[in-house]
Simulated scan of single mutants.
Amino acid sequence: MGINHLAVVEQFSGSFTEAVAGHLGAPVPTCPGWTVDDLVAHLAEVQAWWTAVVLAKGAYPDEEAARRAADTGPDRVEGWREISARYVAVHEEYQRGAGPDAPVWVWWNDEQRDTAAALASRQAHEAVVHCWDAWRAVGAVGSIPAELAVDGVEEFLGRFLYGKPWEGGPAVLELAATDTGTTWFVGTDGAAEPARLAGGAADARGTGTAEELYLLLWRRVGLEEVTVSGDRAKAEALIAWPSLK
Rank of each mutant, 00 (worst) to 15 (best):
G190F: 05
I239W: 01
G58H: 11
A176F: 11
R86N: 13
L173A: 03
E111K: 14
S15E: 15
P74W: 11
D189R: 06
H42M: 06
N109E: 12
P29Y: 02
A134K: 06
G33R: 07
G169S: 09
R122A: 14
T207L: 03
V138A: 04
G25K: 08
E236G: 10
D101I: 07
S84V: 10
D151K: 04
A235G: 07
G199I: 10
E64N: 10
E236N: 09
S13C: 11
A134M: 04
L244S: 00
R96Y: 10
W166N: 09
A137S: 10
V90A: 15
G206K: 00
D75F: 07
A149K: 02
V28R: 12
V40A: 12
G152W: 03
L217D: 02
E82Y: 02
K57D: 15
R205L: 12
V226G: 08
D101V: 07
L215I: 08
V20H: 09
A66M: 04
P74D: 15
V40Q: 06
G139I: 03
A69W: 00
Q123T: 00
V226K: 08
A65L: 07
D151W: 02
D114H: 13
S243N: 05
G79T: 00
T188Q: 04
L24E: 08
D179T: 01
D151I: 01
E225N: 13
L213W: 03
L173V: 06
V226H: 09
A237M: 08
A171C: 05
V221F: 10
A146C: 05
V28A: 12
E10M: 03
A85N: 11
W108R: 13
G97K: 13
R219K: 14
A85L: 14
F185I: 00
L238Q: 08
A56C: 08
T72Y: 03
